[in-house]
């Protein structure tokens, strides 16, 4: 009887130690869908107090030569892509404007919780190419993965903060619906089958992000008046930051220039 009691005390002690040890460790293996969280108060944006940030991302320096992507490994891809595919890791227009840069509000929104949009963000595997190449999504917003191709893809977001996963999608398979629960700039995405396919996902906790268009411009609107750190990320050129003060009903300019060699 005594022994039994002693054993129980010992095991309880061990369990507590174990639990303490676990909670101290950073958990990288969180579930894809978070457990139910207590009700939160979402920050209400008052349109009377908001303004926007607009700008252009530029690249100065020698423009990269267009590099053709060789898809001959999978003839079905060559056919599905309709014409030559070019490397899109650094796409600079004639006037130096830079597309596919990810711009987001890095600081200034602390303490505010934003409602998760109900509409999913879609990434399509089409022509053996991820479309779009760069995309933003809010934490816990649904990412819809579509395969429009006549071949099998295996999308693999190589997340480091979020859970890393990969999933096979054959021709005609239903879209996948996944979520990222933690902010992460940026998640590099590859296809496990087609080595040339790449995409980048920016996961942020608010709706204030943009991807620069073909002409290098972007706009982040409906932002409450205040001072923010705006950051821009480009897959080859790294990141830059700026302080921007937004006032109600005004558009504040925030331009970025990456210097090439």
């Amino acid at each position: 009887m005594k022994m039994n009691l002693l054993l129980k005390i010992c095991s309880a002690g061990c369990a507590i130690t174990l639990m303490a040890g676990c909670s101290a460790k950073p958990k990288s293996d969180q579930p894809a869908v978070p457990a139910a969280v207590p009700a939160v108060t979402y920050f209400k944006v008052d349109p009377a107090t908001t303004g926007s940030i607009t700008g252009t991302i530029r690249f100065t320096g020698k423009k990269p030569m267009p590099k053709v992507i060789d898809m001959s490994e999978d003839p079905a891809c060559v056919e599905a892509h309709h014409g030559k595919a070019f490397d899109e890791s650094l796409v600079v227009a004639k006037n130096g404007s830079l597309s596919n840069a990810f711009i987001y509000v890095k600081q200034g929104l602390e303490g505010k919780t934003f409602e998760v949009p109900k509409t999913p963000v879609t990434i399509d595997q089409s022509g053996c190419w991820f479309r779009p190449r760069v995309l933003g999504i809010q934490t816990n917003q649904t990412l819809q993965v579509v395969n429009s191709d006549p071949v099998t893809h295996n999308i693999h977001p190589m997340a480091e903060v979020n859970r890393e996963w990969n999933h096979s999608q054959g021709p005609g398979d239903a879209p996948l619906n996944r979520r990222f629960v933690k902010p992460e700039i940026m998640i590099k995405v590859k296809c496990n089958i087609h080595s040339w396919m790449h995409a980048f996902i920016g996961v942020v906790e608010n709706p204030y992000y943009a991807v620069s268009k073909d002409d290098g411009t972007f706009e982040i609107s409906n932002l409450p008046a205040g001072t923010y750190t705006v950051a821009v990320w480009q897959e080859n050129l790294g990141t830059q930051e700026q302080q921007v003060t937004v006032t109600a009903h005004n558009s504040t300019a925030s331009n970025f220039t990456f210097k090439g060699k």
């Binding site: 071949v151 099998t152 893809h153 295996n154 693999h156 890393e164 996963w165 990969n166 999933h167 096979s168 054959g170 296809c191 496990n192 089958i193």
Partner: peptide, 10 residues
């Protein structure tokens, strides 16, 4: 074969 080449589903 593509399914296995891609590493299945995590």
């Amino acid at each position: 074969v593509d399914f296995y080449a891609g590493g299945g589903n995590s």
